[in-house]
Design a protein around this nucleic acid. Structure first.
Lengths: 116, 116
DNA sequence: ATTATAGTTGAACATTTATTCAACTGTCAA
DNA sequence: TTGACAGTTGAATAAATGTTCAACTATAAT
């Protein structure tokens, strides 16, 4: 009776050995998850959302989000480090704008997912 | 001298009042950031990556990721709650598979961003 | 029935993270 | 120069998060 399909299969070692070497390298893995981590905060999503409409300075962003300039500035730094926004100082103000065309598409895809 | 362009502009209230009402509602905002939070972990990225190749049970996933079944199970629960994977029990095993076609596209876009 | 295996679960622990607060820099106006 | 405003920064606090461990359920094999 060796050809019967078992009710429960042991783990498929061949499949594991085929998939394991195709896994992404640690570095790429961290880059990917770090990118999503940056997007995974409602304050930063709002900042990106607002900047899709216009270049805006910190005070304007703080007014739109109803938050302190300090809190906004901290989060803008995260977005800047991730290269999702860029900043430009003009007079007393620092104006921020989007720096990556992928972001708008990614947010749109995510919207389709969460709106199902 | 009232028509000179000021070296430093005060915040643009009209712009703020135009953008503010177009901001996403709290609920949508949390749904969006929660989605990205789920993607923002290297273990869960690996799970999704592996499941793109094949339906896999918990033990196989644990072997591929070199992690305990417990840790994998905890993260699979997060993915299940977010409706990114679905599970199906067969015998003693629980097989997981992808549940959302958006995810592969979103990961691909994110790859393009981080690989620049 | 008993034993072994697959997977889930909750508590605990350590780490990360977002906001607040106060102090600071730099620029403009008087 | 003095004062006001825009923004940044670091420390502190509180909240969220990932993995481990041990205990548990459920299914299969003997």
């Amino acid at each position: 009776m060796e050809n019967k399909t078992p009710d429960s299969e042991a783990i498929n070692a061949d499949l594991v050995n085929k998939i394991k070497p195709n896994m992404p390298k640690k570095e790429l893995l961290y880059d990917l998850s770090d990118f999503f981590k940056v997007m995974g905060d409602s304050t930063r999503i709002q900042l990106l959302w607002a900047l899709e409409e216009n270049e805006l300075c910190v005070g304007e962003l703080a007014a739109i989000l109803d938050m302190t300039k300090s809190a906004v500035s901290h989060q803008l730094k995260v977005l800047r480090t991730a290269k999702l926004v860029r900043s430009q100082k003009r007079g007393k103000n620092v104006y921020y704008s989007l720096n990556d065309e992928h972001v708008q598409i990614i947010v749109k895809m995510a919207l389709e997912h969460v709106c199902e």
